[in-house]
């Protein structure tokens, strides 16, 4: 028997917003889990990439409280392996942007130690600030 899920308007809005920002048809995900199995950061995450996708599918904005999207390193391993052709890195970026676009920075580089600031190459600071500041 096919069970139909009915999402609330609020949930549909959240799903649509993430689909728009990411440009990905998130409902296509069939939860195979290849992304989670491929993710180099998965052991650090509170929810796996496939769980993150499921939450977005269901329009659960609670996903914003997860730290998984902040641990994504945009390595595109899931992207090249997804059998449904989805780009999860874009979904993670969309979720990050929802927060960053409200001018909420995820890191404060001023808190890095002097030693770190001396060592870090520009490429690390530029990419990190691109990804973690709004």
């Amino acid at each position: 028997m096919i069970k139909k899920l009915k999402l609330s308007d609020k949930n549909v809005d959240f799903l649509k917003k993430i689909e728009e920002l990411s440009g990905e048809v998130i409902t296509r995900c069939d939860q195979c889990g290849i992304c989670s199995a491929s993710c180099p950061m998965v052991s650090e995450m509170d929810i796996t990439p496939s769980q993150l996708m499921r939450m977005v599918q269901l329009g659960e904005s609670e996903v914003m409280e997860s730290k998984a999207m902040w641990l994504c390193a945009s390595c595109f391993t899931c992207t090249v392996r997804c059998p449904r052709g989805l780009d999860l890195s874009k979904v993670a970026e969309a979720l990050r942007q929802v927060e960053l676009r409200q001018a909420i920075d995820h890191i404060d580089v001023k808190k890095l130690s002097k030693d770190e600031m001396k060592r870090l190459p520009q490429i690390a600071l530029i990419s990190g600030m691109r990804k973690f500041t709004g």
Binding site: M41, A73, S74, T77, L120, G128
Partner: peptide, 20 residues
């Protein structure tokens, strides 16, 4: 050889990156 080094996470959490 094709596993991510952690990239820009290095400024967010250097321990995560050094584990990788």
């Amino acid at each position: 050889k094709k596993v991510c080094c952690g990239s820009y996470q290095t400024i967010r959490d250097k321990q995560v990156v050094s584990n990788l």
